[in-house]
Design a protein around this nucleic acid. Sequence first.
DNA 1: CTCGATCCCTGGACGC
DNA 2: TGCGTCCAGGGATCGA
Length: 305
Amino acid sequence: MPELPEVETVARGLQTLIAGRRIVSVSLGQTDFMDNPATIEKELPGRNILAVERYGKFLLIRLGDLRCGEGAQSAEESALLVHLGMTGMLLPQPVAEPAKKHTHVAMLLDDGRELRYVDARRFGRMAYLAGETLRKELQRFGADPLSASADEFAERIQARQARIKALLLDQSVIRGVGNIYADESLWKAKIHPAQIGARLTKEQAGKLYHVLQEILRRAIALHGSSISDFLDADGIPGEYQRHHRVYGREGKRCGRCGAVIRRAIVAGRSSYYCPRCQRAPRGFGVMRKKSKARPAASKKRKNSK
DNA sequence: CTCGATCCCTGGACGC
DNA sequence: TGCGTCCAGGGATCGA
């Protein structure tokens, strides 16, 4: 699942592979994950790709003005915003190469390659935005964990009564962190995912800020984590999954204290943590209950059919 | 403000 | 081998 390190990896790859190219034409397949498919079809042809950047978990493909003859740049910024969701991939390939299944967008470039968006689940998002609309959209998101200051990070966390796990995943608080890196950083900082943001001490917030940056930087250096089938722009898998200390390791032992790693739902997401290193906040154990309490477990009728 | 539930979607894991 | 079922998970949205 592409989170900040994976998206950064893709952005860097695309920056070297497609920046400077011109989009000749666009053809769309399924469009239900796009804000404005008609606008994308209309606006992209003829545009130059100025740069590919990462913004939180989004790829920001900055586009040049259509009529770029003289210095008559129309001054209005425009970009194609792409969220890879769970399974999205953006790959520049020779047109001659057969398109994979679930290819929903194909942008023909001026060098004969095609920039293809492939996404089986279509949990991603694509939108063409310009000017004020683009500015407003980017404003909705919180601070980038790699460029925010320690104080800004701590303030954003400590101002909230929500659980720290929910805050890390909330893109309007911190942009770019997903389930993997939230769990890994909380483990390293020895903070339980259910802890309330406002209850973190100054030291804990500072520690979390520090380890989060450290983990994200290390993951970027290793081209991210290849969990499902994430591949970078060159089609190469990342290596960071080998360094996961808790994510996906339920039942295995904590590499720090030897306790058995657990999984619990926190903030609606699977959360992996060490019950010994990461002390649960008061009340958390009670609400989760060891087991009994509800024997038959009249389990909500989750199936509907 | 915060929470859980629900929906979106498909592939992969698992049970029989 | 081939079904059926469950689950994963980011984000939007809605009601509690």
